[in-house]
Amino acid sequence: MSEKIATRDVYGKTLVELGRTREDIVVLDADLSKSTKTALFAGEYPQRFFNMGISEADMMGTAAGLAASGYISFVSTFGVFAAGRAYDQVRNSIAYTRLNVRIVATHAGLTVGEDGASHQTLEDIALMRVLPNMTVVVPADGYQTRQALFELVDYPGPVYLRLGRPKVPRVILEGTVFQVGKGQLLKEGRDVALIATGIMNGMALEAAAVLKGEGIDAAVVNIHTIKPLDRRLLSEVAADTGAVVTAEEHSVIGGLGSAVAEVLAETCPVPMLRVGVKDSFGESGAPDELMQKYGLTSFHLVEAARSVLRAKKKKEGRPPK
């Protein structure tokens, strides 16, 4: 594992890289450009950067107008404001219109840390994935963030890209291909599938290592694209393992866990548990401590895996009708 890096730092650098050759890229921010790292683009290409001030609703509409005129609009602010505060603007001016707006939301989830619940969005995946036309991507690490940005520049229609605040470890191996809507089998396994998104992939790999010590062979699947969801891969791993645990830095309502449950209920129902925040707001604290307190660590994934394996055994032991 190489050095840790924040996905938002990669975003800032990659935008500059993309802007060099792509003159049709414009970037908008709402007074958070130093935090979202769009300030780097602003420094290089000031004519194509618009600081909209603290006006997220207006920013979404302006991005739509630029996109309607042929530009590719990258819009950045914290996730809580992008998906929550400006929801109707995202819905009506961006999703309904199918415009090429890339909403790159940083500071998603509990790992915002000390700023507390007002700034920790645990609902954004749910809010964005329910919108028709919207593509929702949550990269696992910095490496995947760069790959996703290159892939999403020309992806048709609106996109919500969810990034975080803290530095996170590298989990994606060099050369791993990124394709929108295509899940990644990070580790094969026969007994249980750990299906993760975003920074939870690192914890899923750790959990798989712990489980191996107990003689449990866990698969790890990275679902970086929540929408469109890789239904085929999910159904396959569910059928192969017969037990599923999902993991997300998001509410268990409406996010990855819900999306996976929706698919598997229709294609391959198996015992399943969702690891995520249990229908509650976050609070102030150190990111690591919050992840511990709200049940989002490799330890919690191991526990969930053991539990879901018990349910699987019980199901298998059930006598046929």
Partner: peptide, 17 residues
């Protein structure tokens, strides 16, 4: 309430062009 923001975006685009 949303159309003026979109019009602003179109005006910025016209200027960039």
């Amino acid at each position: 309430g949303q159309g003026l923001s979109a019009a602003n975006g179109m005006a910025l685009a016209a200027r960039l062009d």
